[in-house]
Design a protein around this nucleic acid. Structure first.
Length: 456
RNA sequence: GUGAUUGUAGCUCAGCUGGUUAGAGCGCCGGAUUGUGGUUCCGGAGGUCGCCGGUUCGAAACCGGUCUUUCACCCCA
């Protein structure tokens, strides 16, 4: 009985056209990365279990794909753990490898491991798949690509300015106009938490605040109360629920609100540097928007936080994100190295471009000329011509089987091959080729040199 | 992990409140047309109705479980 074919949940096959479109995005991002001075690295698809675990929070640990040990892996597990059916404890005993969850942690590991060979500040980019054991939904897969660019070993805020420009450059180049680059700073969030006297609830506070545009001011207040944040504190942050105006106006408001928090004031200063310089330099198509509710990846970001949303008419989660982490490599033993980076979500960008019909005509690698196969000696004659054509980079192929002409013509038609060469006994005798233009239907007898002059 | 949702031919889908040989369009293969494709006409192959179990005289249809699809929550790109 034949097995029904299928692929795991949240994974996809890509057709030639899809691959071509994806490559178009890849090469665009890559080109801009290199223009900005980044160099590529690659890391393994899977890392040591211990390298990844505990780096993304409890939720992250759950979403990491673990790889089962080889051999009789249950034999070594403590009897007590097996009996207790404690999955978490058992996992650490039956798995010592796990699939990459993002590109940042492996990069941190890379930097520490190769610190002696790296010239700091180190600017690297990396475009590889990552895996998450998430439940798939719109724009969310279990295998997807991230395109990251990070700088380690520099605390300069010019990097933040450059990353905003880089985002703008890529999306402009992709003709994806009207994206919004949201900018925040963890110091602002920490400052606010300090002002309202809920410093220890920073994470709960920001996670709730992050949902403002989704559940509204009322929903946010409710969630904050639920997390044990006092009513009085919530009252103090209400101005943030209606936070608008230009970036400069927002900065002024924040300055006033945070005047009693040293950290908060530093955050305002940092943001002002970035905002002012981006304003001076200008952006091609993106909008830079200060967003105090932005709180993604707070587990490790310490300074700037970025997130890019697609143009407003497209319903899609963020298509990019990033931020600064002052002690990126600390967990692997290299202290005082600051990192800042951004990421492009290739698969989501693809969906957005598709929805907005922004893929230019993709060049599918397909032959310009198909030689029909009308028999063994004819095929042999054609192969000699093919050798020459291919030496001249002319994409060409011979229909592999001797089949009816209708069938071979059909094949050329379906693959949209623009030219067909017909060689029968007549042509062999004349040492010529009948070249047929599949678009116009015209055909003419020509020699090898004329075949080579085909340009399409 | 929680809550919904989907699953019938290669593809897109019909199939009435359970009733006997499960249909269409497109695609595929062959022929009309043995050195000429896209059009047309004719013919053909292809499905244990996602899987397992239950209810029933009888299940593609009803019920339960499981997998899958899509979506929301959580979280994230």
């Amino acid at each position: 009985m034949a097995q029904k074919p299928g692929i795991p949940k949240g994974t996809r096959d890509f057709s030639p056209t899809e691959v071509a479109k994806r490559n178009y995005i890849f090469s665009t991002i890559k080109e801009v990365f290199e223009t900005y001075g980044f160099q590529p690295i690659e890391t393994p698809s899977f890392e040591n279990y211990s390298t990844l675990m505990g780096k993304y929070g409890e939720e992250g640990d759950r979403l990491i794909f673990k790889i089962l040990n080889s051999g009789d892996y249950l034999k070594k597990v403590d009897e007590a753990i097996l009996v207790s059916k404690n999955s978490v404890k058992a996992t650490s005993q039956i798995s010592e490898k796990a699939l990459r969850y993002d590109l940042t942690v492996p990069f941190a590991r890379y930097v520490v491991q190769h610190q002696n060979d790296i010239v700091f500040p180190f600017k690297r980019y990396q475009m590889q798949p990552v895996w998450r054991a998430d439940r798939p939904q719109k724009g969310r897969f279990r295998e997807f690509y991230q395109c990251d660019a990070d700088v380690v070993g520099s605390k300069s805020l010019w990097q933040e300015v450059e990353f905003v420009q880089l985002y703008d450059a890529v999306f402009s180049k992709l003709k994806l106009l009207g994206t919004t680059i949201k900018l925040n700073n963890r110091k602002i969030l920490a400052g606010i938490a300090e002002i309202i006297g809920e410093k220890d609830k920073l994470i709960d506070f920001t996670v709730a605040l992050d949902k403002l545009d989704k559940i509204g001011a009322e929903g946010v207040s409710k969630e904050m109360l639920l997390k044990g944040i006092s009513e009085e504190a919530i009252k103090k942050v209400t101005p943030l629920f209606n936070f608008n105006g230009t970036n400069q106006e927002k900065l002024n408001q924040l300055e006033e609100l945070l005047k009693n928090s040293e950290e908060g004031i530093q955050g305002v200063k940092d943001l002002r540097f970035v905002v002012n310089n981006v304003e001076t330099l200008g952006l091609q198509s993106a909008n830079l928007e200060l967003d105090v509710t932005l709180a993604r990846g707070l587990n490790y970001y310490t300074g700037a936080i970025f997130e890019v949303s697609a143009p407003k008419n497209v319903k899609m989660g963020s298509i990019g994100g990033g931020g600064r982490y002052d002690d990126l490599t600390g967990i692997f033993g290299l202290k005082n190295i600051s990192g800042v980076g951004i990421s492009f979500g290739l698969d989501r960008i693809y969906l957005v471009l598709e929805e907005l019909n922004l893929f230019k005509e993709v060049d599918l690698p397909k032959p310009t000329i198909l030689f029909l196969n009308l028999g063994e000696s004819e095929a042999s004659f054609c192969m000699k011509a093919l050798v020459e054509l291919r030496k001249h980079q002319i994409k060409s192929e011979l229909y592999p089987d001797t089949a009816k002409m209708k069938k071979q013509m059909n094949y050329a038609n379906k693959r949209e091959i623009p030219f067909v060469v017909i060689v029968g006994s007549k042509e062999i005798e004349l040492d010529k080729y009948t070249l047929k233009n599949m678009h116009t239907g015209d055909q003419k007898l020509c020699d090898l040199q004329e075949l080579m002059n085909i340009s399409i």
